[in-house]
Design a protein around this nucleic acid. Structure first.
Lengths: 348, 348
DNA sequence: AATATTAATGCAATCGATTGCGCATTTCTT
DNA sequence: AAGAAATGCGCAATCGATTGCATTAATATT
């Protein structure tokens, strides 16, 4: 009763009148310790309720067995799916995952990254959240050779593993699909052209038009921040054109939805009068009415791959940086399916 | 260039020909160190690119500055909102948050909790995920007096801070609302009666009926697991009654939605012929058509409160366990609003 | 039996920061 | 001016686990 604190290897050693070194080695199944001794040690450890002190071990080993993950917002489907994937792989490999959100704030991101650095994470998985121009806080990781993996949004000027989705192809296929559905005049709502992601989606759109011999009309492309209100404003602007579009490839599902609601209120039928396609496959896109055609981004898989990449760097000291481009999937739903080609089943 | 590893307080001490103790104290703004010395130390620390080694500090201080959070599934709106709230408060207080998901698996939960224990988390915030009968892994925390906070789903037999929502009141208000809307025969789709949460929702429903002098008809209550398919089966069963209900209080939004889709396909109008209310305010409930009336559970707030409670235990050694019941909010939307009393604005 | 091998274990330093105690120097008191 | 009090700083132990090297015990070799 007088020993209130946790037993350590020294307590076990004292109990058995052996040295702490032996206990430590036995606990690690070091072959230098005889089976007999090891078994005695394990028995005593068990009976004393011994739990290794991970912190002490980490200090000595100069590693934390921890992977840091930084996302703009935990509470958003895509990101929580990625986190879920990272956690899945990391946990199986015996790592702890620490997660933090930048709230899209440059200052918070810096604070988080520094804190993770101070906590000696063994690697960092991050999705850059803002249009910050300064990446010094991330360069620290490169300088110290601490494994770094970017996902979804990478910093071009920093060498590291990167994992992104094939936005170009996504944009291309959305556009081709709309053309296949017989839409003739296809508009595009693009996101910030500071981000490669949105540049690629737009380029995919342009390429598909070109391949089909459709002239590219810049007045049909509107660039904004892709929040719900932007969708409404953009669709209003498009409908005011002398020749409005008969389909819109929206940069994300949020604007697809807000556009749809606006158009519905104006008595425009979807998909008959106007085709709509979003991007990201947010959960709601499947259950709204009409359901929204979209591009699925494999968030969970992306998280798993990011974890695998970082573990590879950590454990095999891999020093060749790769960029992994994950395929996207076109999901055809009601909002663009006026030929009723195929239906995404709702399993209700 | 020859000193490859990070500088420590000893390196700073050597540089200034003073002791490491002084450096350590200066870095903590200990008043025993003169301003002049401190400034010199800070300057050198800065120039050497010194970063405190949190692990060493944690070892010495016998704490990790870390809070563990265990949820059934990260990738689900309510839980990610809670995590977001925890992270918000914890980060501001200088704590690191480590998150893990049990995937609703008893064994994984045990493994996670033990791992967090070994990692010496300063406190654990957890939502029990399964019908496990064994809570030994959590009792460890109590035995060692490590702060523990349950949220959403608590273990009755373990003394700890708990934070839940007022499910009874939620159920009551949903039912009262349906009555106010003129619905006469109100059914209820209940979740597993092993969980207090669902017991309370059902009791709220029963109480409201009683208060309004409406007899409680057991055939109108169906208990299931509240997944989408259950919603369809339950609504089929209810519609087959000799006198079917004209409104259903569904145990969650998922079943509310699947019921609605089924009813729509059968040509039943909502809310005119049938009123539907869900529970939880999942993001989709606002954007489906008709939008779903529901009860909002303050996930983010719950996370914040949970973090505050655990910080209070950690920092003030608070030893009186509280149970905090958060209020819920009834959100009236289209699916139950046949009197058009008020509309939940969609800010599109 | 004496020496060479091999196996099993212990010693002591180390990881980096923290802190009780004590010494030395400066400032205050009267 | 001489002792008292305050100020500033350093010594060395500590947190618990790990590991290179040394040492002892056991077994093999000739």
């Amino acid at each position: 009763m007088h020993k209130k604190s946790d037993p350590t290897i020294h307590d076990i050693a004292r109990e058995l009148k052996i040295s702490a070194s032996t206990v430590s080695r036995a606990l690690q199944n070091n072959p230098r310790i005889s089976l007999k001794t090891r078994e005695k040690i394990l028995a005593v450890a068990e009976s004393m309720g011994y739990r290794p002190n991970v912190i002490a071990s980490n200090l000595r080993n100069k590693r934390s067995n921890t992977i840091g993950v930084v996302v703009p917002l935990i509470n958003r489907y895509f990101f929580s799916a990625v986190i879920s994937g990272v956690e899945d792989i990391a946990f199986k490999a015996g790592y702890t995952v620490v997660i933090s959100q930048s709230n899209d704030l440059a200052n918070k991101e810096i604070a988080i990254v520094q804190s993770m650095f101070a906590n000696r994470v063994d690697g960092l998985i991050i999705s850059i959240a803002m249009q910050a121009t300064n990446y010094e806080h991330l360069k620290m990781f490169r300088k110290k050779n601490i494994p770094l993996v970017f996902f979804d949004r990478a910093v071009a000027e920093i060498e590291a593993d990167k994992i992104v989705v094939d936005d170009f192809n996504g944009g291309y296929r959305v556009t081709q699909h709309l053309i296949d559905q017989g839409y003739k005049r296809i508009g595009h709502m693009a996101g910030s052209q500071n981000l490669q992601t949105y540049i690629d989606r737009k380029n995919g759109y342009i390429e598909a038009l070109a391949k089909n011999g459709i002239p590219h009309d810049e007045s049909l492309v509107i660039t904004n921040s892709l929040i719900a209100e932007d969708g409404v404003r953009a669709v209003q602007q498009l409908m005011n054109l002398s020749v409005p579009p008969d389909a819109i490839f929206c940069g994300n599902d949020t604007t697809a939805l807000s556009s749809m609601i606006y158009l519905r209120d104006k008595g425009i039928r979807i998909p008959e009068d106007m085709g709509i396609v979003g991007f990201s496959n947010e959960p709601f896109s499947r259950v709204v009415s009409p359901s929204i055609s979209t591009i699925a981004q494999p968030g969970f898989l992306m998280g798993q791959k990011a974890a695998e990449m970082i573990l590879n760097q950590i454990e095999h000291k891999e020093r060749i940086f790769k960029t992994l481009v994950l395929p996207t999937e076109l999901i055809i739903r009601e909002s663009s399916n006026r030929k009723k080609i195929k239906d995404d089943q709702l399993f209700f």
